[in-house]
Computed example of a mutant assay.
Amino acid sequence: MNPVATWRRLLAEFAGTALLVTAVVGSGVMATTLSPDDVGLQLLENSVATAFALGALILTFGPVSGAHFNPVVSAADWFLGRRAGTGLTAGDLGGYALAQTLGAIAGSILANLMFDLAAVDFSGRDRSAGHLWLGEVVATAGLILLIFALARSGRSAVAPAAVGAYIGAAYWFTSSTSFANPAVTIGRAFTDTFAGIAPASVPGFVVAQLVGLAAGAALTLALYPGVGQAADEVVVAHDGGTAPTHAGRP
């Protein structure tokens, strides 16, 4: 159980998710400004900035809330930990998901304002296609497996680097450029920039992410049947950095 006051954890999830989306959207705007004729270079600039920002944000907010910044991570934490009496409670899950979603919207608005754009400008970038949804299933399932494998094997200390690296890589190996996050998906609908997604495309992405959550949780349970015992360590240990002592055990 996390001893940190609930309001502090929710504030950390709100602020962390907001800054993550600010990094995603802001780096996308900067990339299109600096490299207007090279989409590949734009994606490289966007993915590198996102990966580094995510790692830094996990280090910053992890000791307070676990630095989930993602409703599917929080949902997996609740689901996998409930039998062992660890991880988030159902009430925590609802609070985290709401804080993350509001933070993501705030992050898009902040990025828009920093680049002298309309505070809210809904995206016109259509991302509705079966192969993109499949990409989101793969990206989300891999993210869940990575995070909980690190927690169960006592390697939560490397989560900032590992999660940042995974998301940075998944920008390139998935067809969807790896949103892998319902809150971030909703937030990115509020900006008509490189990182945006049309509001009509959001439901398909969110459903695919939920399928990825189920697949990732099932695979994690198959590979690490005792993972629920480590749910309090997701994403970063809540006790100031002490990792569980079950390294190497499933």
Rank of each mutant, 00 (worst) to 15 (best):
G91Y: 10
V64L: 12
R8N: 00
G248S: 06
V24K: 02
T33Y: 11
W133F: 15
L221C: 10
F69Y: 14
G168P: 02
L59W: 14
F205Y: 15
N2S: 10
H238G: 05
D126Y: 06
A208T: 02
F190Q: 05
A129E: 10
G248H: 07
A243I: 10
V4E: 11
G187D: 07
G40L: 09
G81C: 12
L219P: 01
L43Y: 09
V4K: 13
F190M: 09
A99V: 05
L113C: 06
A106H: 07
G40F: 12
A170C: 07
A217C: 14
T22D: 12
V64A: 06
G87C: 11
Q42H: 11
A200L: 13
A111P: 10
F61I: 00
T185V: 07
A49G: 12
P160G: 04
S176T: 05
V207H: 07
G240K: 04
A90M: 14
T6E: 13
Y96D: 00
G204E: 10
T22F: 15
E136G: 04
D239R: 10
A15L: 15
E136A: 08
V25K: 02
G95V: 01
R83D: 15
T22E: 11
G187P: 04
L145P: 01
S123L: 07
E13M: 06
L20H: 02
S65E: 02
R152Y: 05
V4W: 09
F14Q: 01
R82Y: 12
T6K: 14
D38Y: 06
P199C: 10
V235T: 15
A106F: 08
G135A: 02
G66P: 01
A23S: 11
S176A: 15
A53N: 00
E13N: 08
Q100G: 05
A237N: 11
A169L: 15
V72S: 02
I147C: 09
G87Y: 08
G248A: 02
P63C: 03
F148E: 07
H131W: 15
F194G: 01
A23N: 02
D126C: 01
A97G: 11
S201Y: 07
A217E: 03
F205S: 10
G226L: 08
A106K: 06
F61L: 00
G187K: 06
L80N: 06
A200K: 11
V206E: 03
D192L: 10
L113N: 10
T101K: 07
L19C: 07
V137L: 13
L223D: 00
T191I: 03
R8G: 00
G107M: 01
L134G: 09
P3G: 05
V207E: 08
F52R: 01
G135Q: 02
A195R: 09
A170D: 04
Q209F: 06
L110M: 14
G55M: 06
T245A: 14
A31S: 14
E13K: 06
L113V: 15
Q100D: 09
A151E: 02
M30I: 13
F61A: 00
G16Q: 10
E13F: 09
V24Q: 03
A151I: 03
A99M: 05
I167P: 03
W78N: 04
V120F: 07
A159N: 04
A76G: 13
A230W: 05
R9H: 03
V227L: 06
T177I: 03
S35F: 15
